[in-house]
Amino acid sequence: MTNGKDRIAEAKRSSGAYGCVECGKCVAVCPMAEMYTNFSIEMSPRGIIKKTLTGNDIILDENIWYCTECNAGTDVCPQGVSCRDLIRYLKEIAIEKYAVKDIKYCTRCGKQFLSIPVKNFVFGRLKEEPPNVLNILELCPSCRREMYMLRNA
């Protein structure tokens, strides 16, 4: 197993993070601005790329867990930096290296499928729904489909 520094360097290389010119286009389109009231530059893709390039404690940073891994930032980047891939790699490394609390596990199969801040956002939007619907949302998508089949087929 390679150590953390190498893995982060690999993540930076493969996502093209070195090419970042800090134009801020990704911040402009980032849906997190709409999702979280505490959206800040540290949380934005630009901030995370910058922190990844300058320091190593990015894995411990809780800001990476707010990301929904959408395609918006990657789509608009003039330099072809994939912030989606970068954050995905960072999360993978964090999960492997530390016991991460920011992850939601499926209550049926135990697979990790969502980070807690994103889950809180979804549940916050759906807070008017009855509790049994929200219980179903505790399952990972494939388990949900399976449960649905078992009940209805």
Binding site: P31, T68, E69, V118, L137, R145
Partner: peptide
């Protein structure tokens, strides 16, 4: 933006 939150919110 392909974030997939609709998948997470759909009971099915």
């Amino acid at each position: 933006v392909e974030c997939g939150l609709c998948i997470m919110a759909c009971p099915e």
